[in-house]
């Protein structure tokens, strides 16, 4: 039995995962970050991206949008706006969101609006990317 640490993944609408985990890989601001049991105390922000964690020797994947992670030697907590399994992603909705965002980016917008649409586009692209990766 491999060494494990406690992992909580909580999104605004549910508790996504709560339990032991052997290995966690997150997408941080400047790249991928692997976390094993006994990791030093760490706090970092999570942009929309992919998340994978190993339970009983098998990788599990999830799409995550905006959040942050607190890592302690014995446990880790991820708090995110939304967190979904690849099979839960609604491709059609994400595709529509992407098109809507791209359409909006072509218009002249204020800086704030521009950031909003870009963030929306990022979220949609992330969902599409992850669902594509696991189903094609």
């Amino acid at each position: 039995m491999a060494k494990t640490f406690h992992l909580d993944i909580i999104s605004t609408d549910r508790i996504f995962y709560e339990g032991e985990c052997e290995h966690l890989v997150i997408t941080a601001i400047d790249g991928l970050l692997g976390i094993l049991p006994g990791h030093e105390a760490l706090v970092t922000a999570l942009p929309p991206g992919e998340l994978k964690y190993m339970v009983n020797g098998r990788w599990r994947y999830a799409a995550i949008s905006e959040g942050f992670i607190q890592v302690m030697p014995e446990f880790a907590v991820i708090l995110a706006d939304s967190c979904e399994l690849p099979e839960e992603i609604d491709i059609k909705r994400a595709e529509e969101a992407r098109q809507r965002a791209e359409e909006k980016l072509r218009q002249k917008q204020s800086i704030v609006e521009y950031y909003h649409t870009q963030a929306a586009l990022n979220r949609a692209m992330n969902r599409l990317k992850i669902s594509k990766k696991h189903f094609e």
Partner: peptide, 20 residues
């Protein structure tokens, strides 16, 4: 308490974390 490390920097993480 032992200080945690922040990536990339405490200021950056906080400016992201507080709005959240």
């Amino acid at each position: 308490l032992p200080k945690a490390s922040f990536l990339p920097s405490p200021e950056e993480v906080m400016s992201y974390l507080i709005p959240q």
